[in-house]
Design a protein around this nucleic acid. Structure first.
Lengths: 199, 199
DNA sequence: CTCCATAATTGACCACGGTCAAATTTCACA
DNA sequence: TGTGAAATTTGACCGTGGTCAATTATGGAG
């Protein structure tokens, strides 16, 4: 199976094996963390051979992409259920759980960054998809909220993502981590969405 | 040597070995690229043992940090020699060579991101230092140029860095790479430094 | 010049992600 | 139910980064 098109598997066995591998991986991640996951541990729990793992997932990161993407999707589900935010503070609150997750492990953050944009059309994965979804949600919020009208909601959304990443990145940095992620993110969003220009 | 303080090496032998390793690495990078560098090739050219390599550099990435940091520093030297830019276009032109380098290889970009903020004081490396330097240069430019006065030059500088990274990241992304890095960066900087708000 | 503490080097060895030809299982069809 | 082509699984093997106890070179004191 997989390789190129990742079309439907033809045997049910496949689904079972795949589910076993993923649930073994989740078990390890719950017990320890993402960084601690070893392919050998996954296959040992799932009782499969190493080759099977790589027949199902292109590499270890591809499995991570699936699991992390699933998590991000769950956060976005909650986000979408929220009423359209009207203030910057609303936006910050809405994103806080997701931001917290992205900042939970250096390893997770790095992987999300690396996977947030796919290098080829046929390798657009879960994380890349969630970033697209994030943009869509933000765009609809921003076109209702009316912070700035000199630039498109799309551009505003891209900026928010850039600042979100910057806020998290600086959190991992010894020189800058005196300020909390949210304080910094808030600073950025105010400057980005509500500039005060004297004319 | 090294381990904690990385104080002056006590034997001249050390300097020679280190120089050999670094020049071997640069040779490989020139011939191929950063991604292609293998520790075994470096030590084979430098005629040392593997253990020696890791006595000099914590890991492969630490060597990369040094070489890439040196490159970035050279670009910043040129940047600093320039007259203080007055327009966004000036800023873009000034940064173009550096941006081009950061975008030259996915591997390089990922490593720069990972090393741009050190996780601990005693592991602040070359790349992290260059990011500090970049901020300083930008701050001085921005305080002269007077784009926005509602936020500090420091905050403006952080925003520029965030957008620079975003512009490069999207370049690596199949979904967004129709637009050039500079076009995108330009779009961001105009929206960031020259917002037009109707009052 | 000799001695020796300590800095520097060495290379066999390990960890872990990833590959692939061969073996096994599945299932559509007769 | 039997059969064979295709899907799936297997595990020995490889590449490469990284470790560490043992060995060797250095240079200052006597």
């Amino acid at each position: 199976m997989q390789k190129k098109h990742m079309t439907k598997p033809q045997q049910k066995r496949t689904l079972k094996t795949r589910a076993n591998l993923i649930s073994a991986a989740k078990h390890i991640i719950d017990k320890d963390n993402f960084e601690a996951l070893r392919v050998e541990d996954v296959i040992s729990i799932a009782r499969t051979a190493k080759g099977t793992f790589f027949a199902h997932f292109k590499d270890k990161d591809a499995l991570m992409d699936i699991i992390i993407g699933e998590k991000i999707d769950a956060y976005l589900d909650n986000l979408e259920a929220l009423p359209s935010p009207k203030t910057i503070s609303d936006i910050l609150n809405a994103f806080e759980p997701l931001v917290q997750f992205m900042a939970s492990e250096r390893y997770v953050f790095d992987l999300i960054i690396r996977y947030s944009g796919a290098a080829q059309i046929d390798q657009i994965g879960h994380i890349a998809t969630t970033f697209g979804r994030q943009t869509t949600i933000l765009e609809s919020w921003l076109s209702e909220a009316n912070f700035r009208n000199d630039i498109s909601p799309e551009l505003q959304a891209e900026g928010i993502q850039a600042f979100m990443i910057q806020a998290i990145a600086l959190k991992f940095c010894e020189l800058h981590n005196s300020q909390s992620i949210n304080d910094r993110f808030s600073l950025y969003l105010n400057a980005w969405l509500k500039p005060i220009i004297a004319h």
